[in-house]
Amino acid sequence: MAGHAKASGDANTSGHGGHHVVPVRVYLGVFAALLVLTALTTAAAFRDLGPFNNVVALGIAVLKATLVVLFFMHVKYSTRLTGLVIAAALCWMVILVALTLGDYWARGWLGVAGR
């Protein structure tokens, strides 16, 4: 995606009154990349990649989501505050999932029922 990022970089000046209009070719490029990634993840799902099945499926999903957030949702051209808001949301998702899974993960360790 480096090419697209670069292409949009020089478009920064074309904004109206301080905000940013992204060139169409960036949007089309992102769209194409999303299609490719969708094809890739679907194809990968039918191969047995051993322990990497989940990693590949979720890794591609994260990549796709990142593309949408950065370009379609203009975060690449937004203030740092927007990034902070997103980071906080992700951080809290991690707290929710990690601390809960910690309990499930360690549930049987003691070998005593209910502990």
Binding site: L99, D103, Y104, W105, A106, G108, R115
Partner: peptide, 18 residues
């Protein structure tokens, strides 16, 4: 405040390590 909720569940059957 978001990291401590498990203390409501000490006797509920959660992992002793958690």
């Amino acid at each position: 405040g978001f990291l401590v909720w498990g203390h409501h569940m000490f006797v509920a059957g959660m992992s002793i390590y958690a």
